[in-house]
Amino acid sequence: MVDPDARPVEARTGFIDAYLTELAHSVAHIDTAEDIVDEAADHLLFLADALEAAGRPRAEAETLAVARFGSAPLVARAHTAQAAMGSAVSTRSTRRAGLVMLLTVPVATVGIFSNTYGVAHSPGWRGTVHGSGAAFEGLALILLLMGLWGLRKRFGGLGGWGRGALILACAAPFIAAPFGWGAGGAFAVVLSVAMVLLLIGAWMTPVLPRTPIVLMSFGVVGTAAATVTVPWDQGPLALYLPGSLAFALGYLMLGWTMWNEPALDARSGSVPPPSLT
């Protein structure tokens, strides 16, 4: 077939443009309508150009391209039906995980703020502030693990790296327990290693956005470097801020991405598949 990209684009007859307008109306209820129309436009113009280059009159080339593509209502029904068929996982549940990810950061912030600033500035309420801060930090840890579980579930387990991260995260309490008073630090170290494994798995999954992964990786490495450089109870809090903020920002971005997906059940099939004839 002649490569239509190698020759100048001929004047259009308007037939494809009219079809695309009708398609845009037909798929307007779908979130990705703009992408659907752009993809259809590229397909139709590519085919029409190729047919024209092969010797067909332009009007006939455009008509034939549209005829092969299928009517706008048929294509719109196919998109609606395929969306209703859902994906390999229920995004209805992973959307909730996205929401949990969005909640993690404010909960963790309250916990950390109470345990650092609050304890130092509220001597009369030291026990209460410390206790509530610790409770918020514990809750944030649970939310973090739930969010990461959802992230892993949404993207097919993230391969062997994701599986390794899950095993290590589950084993973290048992690995840390023998360290006595240092168990908290040991737990954090093991969890950080698990996080690194998870991020490697996420990086190797092409469907995930790169920016949040880079931010989270910087956050884990930056916080670990700060911890190694200065003991956690001797360094200023600001030392941990760049890493923590980068991690939190990347984590929020991933949570926002998952929360904004359309809610689909894996086995939902309420809309019958369209006839392909």
């Binding site: 990705t32 659907i36 993809e39 259809a40 397909h43 092969r68 593509f69 299928g70 048929l74 294509v75 196919a78 998109h79 039906a81 395929q82 969306a83 068929m85 859902g86 994906s87 390999a88 996982v89 995004t91 949404r154 993207f155 097919g156 999954t205 469907v207 997906e261 689909l264 369209p274 392909l276």
Partner: peptide, 18 residues
């Protein structure tokens, strides 16, 4: 197949991470 009906399947496979 009508060519326009293949794209929805491609999109679904993408949503599934495949």
């Amino acid at each position: 197949l009508p060519e326009g009906t293949v794209y929805p399947a491609l999109h679904r496979l993408e949503r599934a991470g495949l």
